[in-house]
């Protein structure tokens, strides 16, 4: 009996996946599926939260009041998306504290792109345009992911993110059509952010550690390389409209493939940054820890106040 039951459950689970049915929080699921989801979803959530920092670096220096309001609203959205995703991850039975601890101790990863510095105002534009643009390509595919709460969070996030990319492109457009200095600022930011944006899709399919299992379970719906190509194809025309030089000299249209060819990504850099040796890894985690630690007395006050309230309620109930 004990040996048959799990097998039966597993078969039922596999059938659901096959039938394109969503897996919901209280359903039985293989432990590895749960773990894989927690890994991917928390990584996604952490990316939203850590992603607040590079752009946040420019909130107090935004050049106009409108830009400032837009940027503030955008970063607030990132916080919101982090929250949707934490909330979805919590349905898998891990707590927010555990997730935060995993982030701060380096057990959980976040998108490497945020380990690069946002140096100039153009970085805010390039980030919205390219980083959010790449994220959207990923997330659109993930709206069909097999875990219900994750898929629903993605639908919400995609709906909200389209403005993120547009506001970024708008900034780039203003710069690219502005003074020579501004245009140079835009070109420089794009050149720096282009490659890390391509890295956001992960290693080549052949080298991706988690990919095949994730595809089988329909956690991931499309491969890294497929999505990366899609992003490149849709972005090149946008670069042309800006009138900027291509960030990669090897970019050219391949008629036979019906896609743009491009140069090879520097994978050594990719792994180096992932493994903690990027320009801002330490800074980002330190910032997160500091904010979290500084909030500790607030959370402690909340806990204490609550206990007092409960005690008061209990004693009045007894009366």
């Amino acid at each position: 009996m004990q040996t048959v039951e799990p097998l039966l459950q597993e078969a039922e689970f596999d059938q659901k996946i096959l039938d394109e049915q969503k897996i919901e929080p209280r359903d039985w699921m293989p432990e590895a599926y749960r773990k894989n989801l927690i890994r991917q979803m928390s990584q996604h959530a952490h990316s939203e939260v850590i992603g607040m920092q590079p752009e946040g670096n420019w909130i107090t220096r935004a050049p106009t009041l409108r830009r400032k309001a837009v940027l503030l609203a955008k970063i607030q959205d990132e916080a919101g998306h982090g929250l949707y995703l934490y909330s979805a991850t919590e349905t898998l039975g891990c707590t927010r504290s555990e997730l935060i601890e995993a982030l701060q101790t380096g057990k959980a990863k976040y998108a490497s792109i945020f380990n690069y510095p946002a140096l100039t105002w153009a970085d805010v534009g390039a980030t919205g345009w390219l980083v959010d643009g790449a994220a959207i390509v990923n997330q659109i595919a993930l709206q069909r992911t097999s875990y219900g709460p994750y898929a629903r969070a993605m639908v919400r996030i995609c709906k909200e993110e389209s403005f993120h990319q547009r506001q970024g492109y708008e900034i780039m457009f203003a710069l690219a059509k502005g003074s020579p200095q501004q245009k140079q600022m835009a070109q420089d930011a794009m050149n720096r952010i282009w490659w890390p944006s391509l890295m956001m899709f992960g290693p080549h399919d052949a080298d991706s550690a988690h990919s095949s299992q994730s595809m089988k379970w329909k956690i991931k719906r499309q491969s890294n390389d497929f999505l990366r190509q899609k992003f490149i194809d849709q972005t090149i025309p946008q670069i042309k409209v800006l009138g900027l030089d291509m960030p990669d000299p090897e970019i050219r249209w391949n008629k036979k493939r019906g896609h743009y060819d491009h140069g090879e990504i520097n994978w050594d850099e990719f792994y180096q940054v992932i493994n903690g040796q990027g320009p801002c890894n330490h800074q980002r985690i330190k910032h997160h820890k500091r904010a979290h630690d500084e909030g500790e007395w607030v959370r402690e006050a909340v806990r204490n106040y609550r206990e007092k309230q409960n005690r008061r309620e209990n004693s009045t109930m007894k009366k």
Binding site: S97, E101, H292, R299, R306
Partner: peptide, 9 residues
């Protein structure tokens, strides 16, 4: 570290 004393709603 903990924030679970906030309730989930």
């Amino acid at each position: 570290m903990n924030q679970e004393y906030l309730s989930t709603y």
